Amino acid sequence: MSPHPRAEVLRYTAFSADPGGGNPAGVVLDASGLDDAAMLAVAAELGYSESAFLTAPDGRGGHTLRYFSPKAEVPFCGHATVAAAIALAERDGPGDLVFSTPAGQVPVTVVRDGDELRATLTSVEPHTEDITPDDLAEALAALDWPAAGLAPAPAPRIAYAGARHLVLAAATRERLADLSYDFARLETLMHRLALTTVQLVWRESGTVFHVRNPFPVGGVVEDPATGAAAAAFGAYAREAGLVPHDAVLTLHQGADMGRPGTLTVELRPGDPRIRVTGTGTRIG
């Protein structure tokens, strides 16, 4: 039964072909009858980290796309973008889409790969910025991480590719696996810094990373697969010199939650934007 009488709410997972993996999202393909309060109510009732609401199809692959967590609207959400694109492709067939989001225009291409649909989003132009020593100390205190829990490099930074994320590199996989944090304290800091998630990263190899994303500002302890943060991380990794300008990165996320997913991040020379690719499937 739909959580709202005027909205058909679909449920998809993104960044996994398994309904039990990846990151679930609600998708409303026609939200034209919903106001902001109704969209927030749908997202809250579903309880997923974000839900996607589409309006104003233009007949040429263009739609307006908004995202709501259970607590608030967010400017951009990668996994809900992938979920929405795959839902449209199931209805209308694969192809090219353009989503007008609060963060800007986000092109998405959906292709069929065997039995799976695979979506690639292209981020808005990204950037990174410093975090002050005091704010970093507060983030580590809220996470209950000692300073030794951070890798010596790269340096913590705030990265943006549609939404803001604080990126912290963990010294070990064990440090990344041991996530138990002060929800209210981290939420307060994130509101002050206008962060969407904190992205915790451990590097397995030159192009393979494991990530986790606390998301208290969305009313969720942890996000299982975070496409917006993956795009931001691509910009962070490039600016920090971790990877070449033409790299393809693999991010593993959700395994520590029992919802494993895989995000592919592509950097292209001469194009500052980041491409994030993942599969997805309908739930139920």
Rank of each mutant, 00 (worst) to 15 (best):
F233Y: 13
E266C: 03
T188L: 11
Y181K: 12
L193C: 10
T188E: 09
S180P: 04
I274C: 01
G278S: 10
G241D: 02
R238S: 08
V248L: 06
P244M: 03
A232G: 09
T279A: 12
P214Q: 10
D223H: 02
M190V: 11
R212W: 13
Q199P: 00
Q253M: 10
T262S: 12
R275T: 02
G234Q: 07
V221F: 13
R238I: 00
G258M: 04
R173A: 15
Y236Q: 07
P269Y: 01
H252I: 02
A228K: 02
P216A: 12
R192K: 14
E187W: 01
G270C: 02
A163E: 06
E266H: 09
P224G: 03
R173N: 12
A255T: 15
F215M: 12
V243P: 01
A170N: 08
L195N: 03
R268I: 09
G206F: 06
P260M: 04
L179I: 03
L186S: 10
T207C: 02
G219S: 10
W202I: 02
T207L: 05
G218Q: 06
V201R: 03
T250H: 10
I274Q: 01
E222S: 10
A170I: 11
S180N: 15
A237G: 04
D246R: 03
G162Q: 08
H210D: 07
T196A: 14
